[in-house]
Amino acid sequence: MSRRLSRPTLVAQRSAVIIALVVFLAPVLWLALTAYEPSRAIQSTPPLPWFVPGLANFVIIAQQFDLAKLTLGSAVISAGSTLLSLLLGIPCGYALARARHRGAIILAYVFLAIRGVPTVVTLIPFYLFMRQIHLLGTWWAVILMNATLSTAFVAWMMYTAFRTVPTEIEDAAIVDGCGGFGAFWRVALPLVRTSVVASALLCMMFAWNDYLNPAFLTRAETRPLSVALLTAFGGPTTSSWGTLGAMAHISTIPIILVALVLNRFLVAGLIRGVH
């Protein structure tokens, strides 16, 4: 929407957004702040938000964890899962949107149903399966597992998106000699760029913060940050909010940066749509 808003509307809109942001950010900010607190200040009563800041918790996590390797693990798993899901899911979503066959819609619902199966059923069989094909403990195991869920998600996102693109445009392109794939790649895909970016962003976040699958399928050397986050919190008798907060910095900041970059593309898609 490109029309101008009147000043009071703009103020109202901005205030509402700011209130929403405070609600969404404050709890995470609290966790981040605990990183700078000594633990006796974190759980004190009455709880007070001021304290003498220190960096001891960062020293501890830098000492206890191989942060570079953990970040690499998270990056590989997220990037791999996202790429694989997009690669599989976008063409599939396109096919589902364009097919006139009943089988297409059945396939779409099967994808959705598979997302709904609780991990309790699949975890142990999948674990044994990965062992059989010698992928247990590797990043591939997590990527393949994530991609089963995310492919279904991407396929549905793109199915929904491609249905908003009128088929006439593509038909014209096919007549012009584009071919089926050309019509998809050069005509339809650019029109749904926003949905591609949104899917990518969400796939990445699912993979980035997923805990149960990587906890089971990786080894100490291939572990991602999400699993280390819980290790940083500690065991039943040794919980440590400070190190959890410090670790949360490492695990949140990179993904926010990526989201900032990807968001620019979300906007680029819009401008194209307007013209």
């Binding site: 674990y127 247990l136 089971f216 819980l230 290790t231 065991g235 039943p236």
Partner: peptide, 25 residues
């Protein structure tokens, strides 16, 4: 010795899966 530090529930499930599947993890 590769020390893999795990939470309580995670440890329980992971080693049991390992024993049951005879995966020698």
């Amino acid at each position: 010795i590769l020390v893999d530090i795990l939470g309580y529930g995670e440890l329980q499930t992971k080693i049991t899966t390992d024993y049951v599947g005879h995966t020698k993890g």
